[in-house]
């Protein structure tokens, strides 16, 4: 659905980064009417999140979104000063992103999404990214035998994410000669609860610099400082199983769980904050 007055935000994330959980929880928060953003009308279509919501109500994790699915929900929202805004929130199987990278091809549908989005939200499940030691961080006394150990070639997680952003910017027709102001970018480090103690009292930007230094450099060097933000997200507040019920979830309701980690490291139960912030930054 197109709406020239509305803000179109595009949610980008590989599979397993928690796009569906965030969408479902966000929907509950918007309907609660007490956050930075709230529904001003009934959403047109909630079918994308129906089964995910059902699972959360029962205290279970939602299933995996099928690869081919791409469902858009149209959410009429407003901010605290009653400024109306229309969010188009997509839900899709994250493999679509992976396939774009592997095949170096972007479908027409995705090209349109990429060109019309006012802001991009990149979900990165930081605990699932891997930063291997290398020759510089862990030097060897000797490279030893020159024998080459055969090992499968695998692109590092941060290079893959950088390549993804480069591809998407190229499709959008945005160069990096001058810093990027549109689309605005929010990097959401998802499943923050998995960080455990390492996620206490720490700025999300610092976590990104530590865990994904090259990606942190890439976005920091290319986006305008006021068009970039790095936040933490725990949509569920804890890990749920897709089989076992979490009793507390059932009795208190999923809308009582989950939090955002703001840029300064403080936590906020209002999951609409990243969206409100990004929408504000898109001008």
């Amino acid at each position: 659905m197109k709406n020239p007055q509305g803000k179109t935000l595009l949610i980008l994330g590989e599979s397993g980064t928690g796009k569906t959980h965030y969408g479902a929880q966000l929907l509950l928060r918007l309907n609660q009417q007490d956050g930075a953003l709230r529904m001003r009308d009934a959403a047109s279509n909630l079918s994308a999140f129906e089964s995910a919501l059902q699972q959360l109500y029962e205290g279970r994790a939602a299933g995996h979104t099928a690869t081919a699915d791409y469902l858009e929900s149209f959410w009429p929202v407003e901010d605290r000063s009653r400024r109306p805004m229309d969010l188009i929130w997509p839900d899709y199987g994250g493999e679509q992103i992976r396939r774009m990278l592997e095949q170096r091809r972007v479908s027409v549908a995705w090209r349109d999404r990429l060109t019309r989005g006012d802001g991009w939200i990149l979900l990165v499940r930081v605990q699932h990214t891997n930063l291997s030691d290398d020759l510089f961080s862990r030097p060897l006394a000797d490279l030893g035998s020159k024998s080459r150990v055969e090992r499968g070639y695998r692109m590092s997680d941060q290079s893959r994410l950088i390549e993804l952003l480069q591809m998407l910017l190229h499709i959008r027709g945005v160069g990096t000669l001058s810093r990027i102001s549109s689309p605005a970018l929010t990097v959401l480090l998802s499943c923050w609860d998995e960080l455990g103690e390492a996620g206490e009292d720490v700025r999300p930007a610092a976590v990104m610099t530590e865990r994904l230094p090259l990606l942190a450099d890439f976005v920091g060097a290319n986006w305008h400082a006021d068009r970039l933000s790095v936040l933490g997200l725990s949509s569920l507040g804890r890990s749920l199983s897709d089989r076992e019920q979490d009793e507390e979830y059932v009795s208190r309701g999923p809308e009582r769980f989950g939090y955002i980690v703001r840029a300064d490291g403080s936590r906020d139960p209002d999951l609409t904050v990243p969206i409100a912030e990004l929408a504000a930054r898109t001008g």
Partner: peptide, 25 residues
């Protein structure tokens, strides 16, 4: 600020990493 040949860098860099207990070669 980016690279047009990130795959090329990776083919070199991956042999310089510690992965699965195997040191750089």
């Amino acid at each position: 600020a980016g690279s047009y040949t990130i795959g090329g860098w990776e083919t070199i860099a991956h042999s310089l990493r510690w992965e699965g207990g195997v040191g750089p070669t």
